[in-house]
Design a protein around this nucleic acid. Structure first.
Length: 175
DNA sequence: GCCTCGATTGACT
DNA sequence: GTCAATCGAGGCA
């Protein structure tokens, strides 16, 4: 099984958010294709890193290729993949995936973590192990296949068009 | 220590 | 369309 190298993640979140669409996320025995993402950058008012380094967002200040997980509304866990080089905070939020070898609802950021069994215990884990990693695209994607819109659920910095998803994909969040 | 509210979801009118 | 659930981070004292 081919694993994407760390160099893939050492780029700005906006670029990574697009290139990671259509790739396959492996978590244990489960596999799912990433179909919807959002980019969170340095100096982004909507990012958790805006306002400085804290224990929670610590991992985003490290190099790309690690999991940034956190609990929202005391109920849901959202999964991010850290991006860019060490010292530059950035991450890509995984909003929706398409299940490849399991069943479950994954059309939302809180749902996909639940469906795949991801917990806070996975905070900070790398994407370079046999257990957890991402493998290259399994489908052909060109510029026209990627839809770019404003982000969902946040209001500061909303004018930034940093939400990306695959056109005509039924597994997208948001009804 | 106390208070507020969020990168959400699902149940309900 | 509206709204509660449920907990920890972060701001303030």
């Amino acid at each position: 099984m081919e694993i994407l190298p760390q160099s893939f993640y050492l780029r700005e979140p906006c670029a990574l958010a697009q290139d990671i669409l259509g790739t396959v996320f492996h978590y244990g025995e489960k596999q799912a294709m990433i179909v919807e993402t959002e980019a969170y950058c340095k100096d982004d008012p909507g990012s958790h890193t805006y306002g400085g380094r804290t224990p929670r967002n610590e991992i985003m200040f490290g190099p790309g290729g690690y999991l940034y997980l956190y609990l929202i509304y005391g109920i849901h866990i959202l999964m991010n993949i850290t991006a860019d080089k060490a010292g530059i905070p950035g991450a890509v939020l995984i909003r929706a995936v398409k299940p490849l070898n399991f069943k479950g609802r994954t059309n939302g950021p809180g749902l996909l973590t639940k469906a795949m069994g991801i917990t806070m215990d996975d905070y900070g884990k790398s994407l370079f192990s046999n257990e957890i990693h991402i493998s290259p695209r399994i489908m052909n994607i060109d510029e026209d296949t990627i839809v770019r819109t404003s982000r969902i659920g946040i209001y500061s910095g909303k004018k930034r068009l940093q939400r990306y998803y695959l056109k005509n994909c039924p597994f997208i969040s948001r009804k």
